[in-house]
Amino acid sequence: MISIKDLKKNFGDNEILKGISYEIDKGEKIAVIGPSGSGKSTFLRCINLLETPTSGQIFFNGEEITSPETDVNRVRSHMGMVFQHFNLFNNLTIMDNITLAPVTLKLKTPEEAKETALTLLKRVNLSDKADAYPSQLSGGQKQRIAIVRSLAMNPEVMLFDEPTSALDPEMVGEVLEVIRELAESGMTLVIVTHEMGFAREVASRVLFVDEGIIKEENEPQAFFNDPKDERLREFLSKVL
């Protein structure tokens, strides 16, 4: 579904990604872990072109999205993204946050979009917040709304960029629960996370990104129980 070929990204003279190749199949749940500054967030942000790769190719359903002719807006409308800091639209109510993109892009009529939004809000137990503004919500609520906002676009894949890192510990659970349900529903996920327990439990594959490359990749049991790479062993010994 997503095919990444020799992806490189520089910020000025700083080489963040040094050549990443990876294939993501439909329905897979990919957890990306690694030390901070390793390039894992940049990797994720390259997939929906929030960062423009310096070189390399990315294919989405067979189409090369890194080609200059690609309509990035259309590609992004098929990929949901959830940010560390939620990034809900501060000037809009929760309902408008969710319906803005589908209505503006004419994928749904305002009525349809509202209906979808209410169904999704119910799923995350936040129906009563439809008319609230983001500033009135807790971090955990904001992140659940951010997930709903992405889902309202019916994405084929969801990208999560450290979705629980900015949350109070007591709110991490409620957000992970929503992501877990999403995983169980068959959605394709790529999640950059520091929640090792969650990665082990939910992921179908785990990647260890360090120094701009994928140092190790495996299914979760082998990845956590029998790490091969020296850096990964060191990393796991510190975080587990």
């Binding site: 929906n48 807006n73 590609v75 993204m81 809900l88 993109a101």
Partner: peptide, 13 residues
């Protein structure tokens, strides 16, 4: 906050 722009763009706007 530049996250506002990024969120909008990530939705396909």
């Amino acid at each position: 906050d530049k996250g506002q722009m990024e969120a909008g763009r990530s939705l396909g706007l």
